[in-house]
Design a protein around this nucleic acid. Structure first.
Lengths: 159, 159
DNA sequence: TAGCGGTTGCTGACGTATCAACATCACACC
DNA sequence: GGTGTGATGTTGATACGTCAGCAACCGCTA
């Protein structure tokens, strides 16, 4: 085993400011969503649900869309059902499945939260970056993401 | 209230790939730390503790260093104490305080995890970026972080 | 020295994330 | 038709993060 290549000061600063930016972005976003009584997890499900057809969407497909594993999804949906944001019913074509539908309250919640959410994302992120910086960051994020995706197995996939 | 400025396709792609990069980075890092039996939270405390003087560090100062609130810190320290990673004792100069020290097991854990950790950060992040991209990202992250910091109050501060 | 405001740390409650285990069902194959 | 394999969703256990509230304590001052 060779000596690890520790980060030099410049690299450490990159990593630390990156982590810090993330933390503060999360904090600002969660703070805003909390005003609508939602968490990031709620919002992440409500958005695709609000774009689903009227008769809802299968939990399986919802989970694939947001790349959550089944357990996480099931727990979250149970809590959201208890709060009246969504409703579950059996899937008519596959007895294993569960159909998820937005309730009126759920639709109202996501529609009331969305404008403030995009406003935060703009003010604290997108609009803080020049057009060039946006391009660079998209390039970086794509490369980093794809590199990890081909090296590290996804969390929920089995092989 | 004016119509919200939704993200166009290019902006949405930036935001989504950014979120995706973060998720996969987290996943890779947690996966690696788990090999040493540590979580990100553990590691985040073990590192500053390993740099503390021999008689330990006050929980207050540890919390300020990592910018955690007192409750989170207390819960995490309790769990880590139960696992034998750290030990607590009364602060000799201030009866309100608690001194935190790394145990031998704690030191061993962080030292065994650190090389693999920095390796992951390099392979999946730092070394994926050109020198120029690193500069741009540091600039971006600094700006975004500072902008949020002056707009949004920090989580633990009371005013 | 008694009281007051601020600090420090802990706890319980609740929401969330992950893992392992389980029950049920669909489907292909015999 | 029966069987095995994989898909789907749920649950319980455990760990983590946030919030509200508590208790002990410090420094200061009237």
């Amino acid at each position: 085993m060779t000596e690890p290549r520790w980060l030099d000061e410049r690299e450490a600063r990159l990593w630390r400011t990156f982590l810090d930016m993330r933390r503060r972005l999360d904090s600002a976003i969660e703070r805003q969503l909390a005003e609508a009584g939602l968490s990031s997890a709620d919002y992440g499900l409500l958005v695709p649900l609000s774009e689903a057809p009227g008769d809802g969407i299968r939990a399986r497909d919802l989970g694939r869309g947001v790349e959550w594993d089944r357990s996480r999804l099931s727990h979250q949906l149970r809590r959201m059902e208890q709060r009246g944001l969504i409703s579950r019913r059996n899937c008519p074509t596959d007895a294993r499945g569960t159909m998820i539908t937005l309730t009126a309250a759920g639709r109202k919640a996501v529609e009331s939260a969305a404008p403030g959410h995009v406003e935060i994302v703009r003010r604290h992120f997108v609009d803080q970056l020049s057009r060039e910086e946006q391009e660079v960051l998209t390039t970086i994020a794509t490369r980093v993401r794809d590199n990890i995706a081909e090296t590290v197995p996804a969390r929920d996939s089995c092989m």
